[in-house]
């Protein structure tokens, strides 16, 4: 097990090297750099621009910048944001919780709704419930996240039922504890729905298909023949077996936990990591972009690793160790 984890983590190194180098090349190919907008301002002296260029190393070719950056990263220094004059780690730390909270609530919402729906759709296969659920799932799958978010903005603006963006209200700081929790939750409703609805549909479809496969298996017949109640057969025996394939999707969901909400955050003005990343890309605030890319990449690897470990744990047929 331990050696398996180490092996997996080891693959991260070439992966990160390749991806960061690609980001560096792409950013050097993109027109302009962090200082271009500053150059267009009339009250910025040319000498200052030169001085900052030299300070940031922007006057050097990309590979020199890359090697220098890499040297710093190896020593544990992810660099400073040029726009914020802050260590990148601190900057990301500021926004991390907001995004994590949103992703988590979308995750709980999506899985919490999708799994029961999928199971019910499988048990009552071909019933009117199954058909409606399938139709809705296809509809939800075909609406892109950002469009859903735009719709929600429109609804919020028209009705005033929901806040227009943000993570807290103006009076947040003056609320008591429960007021604060309630206020956060109120602001999470729309982003959670926008982020969750798409995945509900896909998880539900997978769950339904798996469950259908499982209830046709022999052991289910055996269980029924034993005289177990239908409820116990379905939820104790069939469900446990049907859920295994979803554990690997759980790994992917985990990898999107910090970077998957980008679109929704931008459209719904939710002050999280996605907004920071997006603005950094627009501004070409290089080190922030690099750190976010590395974070997303590492989360993917960790997510898959987690899924594999969970699978091995829940399904005894899977062994991570090589057979001796």
């Amino acid at each position: 097990m331990i050696s398996f984890i180490f092996r997996r983590l080891f693959t991260l190194i070439p992966l990160l090297l390749g991806i960061t180098m690609l980001v560096f090349i792409l950013m050097s190919l993109a027109p302009g750099d962090f200082l271009t907008p500053v150059k267009a301002q009339r009250d910025v002296p040319a000498e200052l621009i030169e001085a900052i260029e030299a300070e940031f190393g922007l006057d050097r070719p990309w590979y020199v910048q890359y090697v220098k950056w890499l040297g710093n990263v190896v020593q544990g220094n992810l660099g400073h944001s040029w726009a914020y004059k802050l260590p990148v780690v601190d900057l990301i730390g500021q926004r991390l919780w907001a995004t994590f909270l949103l992703s988590l609530s979308a995750f709980v919402f999506a899985w919490g709704v999708a799994i029961p729906l999928g199971v019910l759709a499988a048990i009552y296969k071909d019933s009117i419930f199954d058909r409606i659920a399938s139709a809705l799932a296809y509809a939800a799958l075909s609406i892109p996240e950002f469009f859903l978010a735009l719709l929600f903005v429109f609804v919020a603006a028209q009705t005033g039922w929901f806040p227009l963006g943000g993570a807290t209200s103006i009076e947040y700081d003056y609320l008591n504890f429960f007021g604060k929790v309630g206020d956060r939750a109120y602001h999470l409703i729309l982003p959670t729905l926008a982020l969750g609805i798409g995945s509900i549909a896909s998880i539900m479809r997978i769950m339904r298909a798996n469950f259908l496969d499982t209830i046709r298996a022999d052991f289910v017949t055996t269980a029924r023949a034993k005289g177990l109640s239908e409820f116990v057969v379905m939820f104790k025996h069939a469900l446990r077996n049907a859920i295994n394939p979803l554990v690997s999707s759980f790994g992917f969901a985990f990898s999107g936990l910090l970077s998957g909400a980008l679109m929704v955050e931008i459209v719904l003005q939710y002050p999280g990591l996605g907004q920071l990343m997006y603005q950094s890309i627009l501004r070409e605030d290089q080190f922030v972009v690099l750190a976010s890319v590395m974070m997303g990449c590492s989360m993917l690897v960790f997510g898959n690793l987690l899924a594999d470990i969970l699978l091995a744990w829940s399904d005894p047929r899977i062994r991570l160790e090589k057979k001796k």
Partner: peptide, 30 residues
């Protein structure tokens, strides 16, 4: 028991998520 892992897993996951949520909500209330 072939499938006993699931119960443990479900319980752990639920408590893990619940715990995190509470921690988060209290974290933003420093």
């Amino acid at each position: 028991m072939a499938h006993s892992g699931f119960d443990k897993y479900a319980a752990t996951r639920a408590s893990l998520l619940g715990g995190l949520a509470v921690f988060l909500l209290s974290a933003c209330n420093e």
